[in-house]
């Protein structure tokens, strides 16, 4: 962390939807300010509820401290007046002695104008982009261990992401737990001991297994998903989406994945996946599978007594329909 001025950068923009990373960035900034001046006054405000003028007032000189750090969260939700006040403050704060401002924005299109103004004022930006892909999460886990001066084997990192990867906070605390409780290199066996048998089962995983004809695995994943509180409706919806993609891609001819993706309005990776899954399907199999998924949807939404049974039957039927049964 660079120590440009005694209290760090005058203006910091924490941008992105990932809450955990945003909290960490804010905490790091506060720690930095405290390090420079232990008596620093820290004010945390929520932009959605502050009255116009309040942030400006907090940025004023304090009787009790020589430096002030003002953290404003949720600036995307700010009312128009507050938003323009923040834009103005962002350009002025550089000239204010002993005052530093941290703005937290969750990304997206709200508060665009404010964002541009803050960037124009030369804010130091901390990106808190969402970790969408497993590869990002693997990198995150690796850096968690690195910061604690610990090492984990690639298999262990993989297993950890598979087990608790759906929520970043959970992943971070799982890392913290492993770092505290164990010594030496963290191996896959250690992760296994802590998170044994736990697999993040999402609707997509269930649907992929069913569409590839692995009935047993699909059922196990389905039970897992339901047991960990995944709603039946999206699970069934991803079965429907999987079949839809498969049917469309099967009929789209032999173009390159990029070309087919453009024609069908899908992403190239979806086309590749659907193509791989389409092998082994007959037209009648697809028809039967689509019908059973539609049936299950009605059952889940109240036509039947037991959504779990309907889903299990749909999964088994879809897997069986693949071989044309």
């Amino acid at each position: 962390m660079s120590e440009r001025s005694p209290a760090g950068p005058a203006l910091t923009l924490v941008l992105g939807p990932e809450q955990l990373l945003a909290d960490r960035a804010v905490m790091a900034r506060i720690a930095q300010a405290r390090h420079a001046d232990p008596a620093v006054e820290v004010h945390e405000l929520d932009a959605a509820t502050v009255a116009p003028g309040e942030v400006t007032a907090q940025c004023g000189p304090s009787l009790f401290a020589t430096s002030v750090l003002v953290v404003v969260r949720g600036v995307a939700e700010a009312a128009d007046e507050v938003s323009s006040e923040l834009s103005r403050l962002a350009t002025e704060v550089v000239d204010l002695d002993g005052v530093a401002l941290v703005l937290v924005h969750r990304g997206g299109n709200r508060g665009r104008r404010l964002l541009e103004a803050v960037r124009g004022a030369g804010a130091q930006e901390v990106s808190c982009a969402e970790l969408k892909y497993d590869s990002d999460k693997v990198r995150f886990v690796e850096s968690e261990f690195r910061q604690a001066h610990r090492r984990a084997s690639p298999e262990a990192v993989r297993a950890l992401v598979d087990a608790v990867g759906s929520d970043l906070r959970e992943l971070a605390s799982a890392c913290a737990q492993l770092i505290c409780d164990t010594t030496g290199v963290v191996g896959a066996d250690v992760v296994e001991r802590y998170h044994s048998g736990r697999v993040e089962a999402t609707g997509f995983k269930v649907s992929d297994a069913a569409l590839e004809g692995r009935a047993g695995e699909a059922l196990a994943l389905l039970r897992h998903a339901l047991a960990t509180g995944v709603d039946p409706v999206p699970i069934n919806a991803s079965l429907g989406a999987g079949l839809r993609a498969l049917a469309k891609v099967a009929g789209a001819g032999r173009g390159s994945p990029e070309q087919v993706a453009r024609e069908l309005g899908m992403a190239p990776f979806q086309v590749r996946k659907a193509r791989a899954q389409a092998a082994g399907w007959t037209p009648h199999g697809v028809a039967r599978a689509i019908e059973v998924v539609a049936w299950a949807d009605a059952q889940i939404k109240g036509a039947g007594a037991d959504p779990r049974y309907a889903l299990e039957r749909a999964v088994v039927t879809v897997a069986a329909a693949r071989s044309g049964a």
């Binding site: 429907g240 839809r244 019908e291 998924v293 539609a294 049936w295 949807d297 939404k301």
Partner: peptide, 12 residues
């Protein structure tokens, strides 16, 4: 009418 996802119902 029974709330099945319209796209799914029409596909079926």
């Amino acid at each position: 009418e029974a709330n099945v996802a319209p796209l799914l119902a029409v596909e079926a």
